[in-house]
């Protein structure tokens, strides 16, 4: 079985429903049974909680219980006072390799100067940045919680403020196509597989962006994990492509 590094999972509770694998031990067991050797975890709590420091502390502790398998990606909300301290703790106290951002849930656009400043500080600290473009299809959101996807158009400009930043977009393929996708890939942005759709979709994406830009990601437990894995089977990938997407690109991205 090809080892998998799942770069996109979540711990804790989705706000609007219980999910079949939203207890960490059962999620870990399920992922390991599918050949996952490492999983990068954010917390669902980071979407709506204002006590982000508490969220990140719990995430770090939960991942510590499954050390070397769960890698925590804490969250920073630059709309909160003293967000720089959350960033410092993620890096220095919790020794996280990166952070996960949710601009649409936290209420800022990518052309807000504070976003450029956050990227710059991450680059300075050599922290990887995962930016989630959306969490769920806007057609099926709770009627009292409609959160539109992140507008990614300003991203190339914002990245200019943070030379060398390592950036991965999560759940990008429902909203990102065409020229912007190509520009971001050329600028070194990485992506993951969770929202790739269409028959043979992974193969088609690899026809558009360099092979080293695509990492395996499932969006579990919100999405059924098997979706991401079966997409690899549906596409006619070379052994080299398979290894790159499943494992090598992720190892290169955060160089643990």
């Amino acid at each position: 079985m090809q080892p998998l590094i799942d770069t996109h999972i979540h711990l804790s509770r989705w706000p609007c429903r219980r999910l079949p694998l939203d207890e960490t031990p059962s999620l870990v067991e399920a992922l390991q049974s599918q050949g996952v050797v490492q999983a990068w975890a954010g917390s669902f709590d980071a979407l709506l909680h204002n006590d982000i420091a508490g969220v990140n502390g719990r995430l770090a502790e939960e991942c510590r219980r499954h050390a070397s398998f769960l890698i925590p990606f804490g969250s920073v909300n630059p709309m909160l006072p003293d967000w720089q301290e959350d960033l410092r703790r993620c890096h220095e106290q919790f020794r996280m390799p990166g952070i996960r951002l949710h601009p649409n849930y936290h209420g800022y656009r990518l052309d807000d100067p504070v976003f450029g400043e956050l990227l710059r500080l991450c680059a300075e600290r050599k922290l990887a940045v995962q930016l989630s473009a959306l969490m769920e299809d806007k057609r099926v959101q709770h009627r009292l919680l409609p959160v539109p996807p992140v507008d990614l158009a300003p991203l190339p400009e914002a990245m200019k403020r943070a030379p060398g930043v390592k950036l991965q977009l999560l759940n990008a393929f429902q909203v990102l196509r065409g020229e912007l996708l190509l520009r971001l890939a050329a600028a070194g942005v990485c992506f993951e597989t969770a929202t790739i759709e269409g028959v043979g979709g992974v193969h088609k994406v690899l026809g558009q962006i360099p092979q080293e830009r695509l990492l395996f990601g499932s969006h579990a437990p919100f999405f059924v994990f098997e979706s991401a894995k079966l997409k690899l089977a549906e596409s006619d990938l070379t052994a080299e492509q398979m290894k790159a997407v499943c494992e090598e690109n992720a190892r290169r991205f955060i160089s643990l």
Partner: peptide, 18 residues
């Protein structure tokens, strides 16, 4: 709902269900 969707994501709903 192929080809807009993949067999993979849609089969997973059933194959991966508890």
């Amino acid at each position: 709902d192929i080809g807009g969707r993949s067999f993979a994501s849609q089969l997973a709903k059933v194959v991966g269900a508890d």
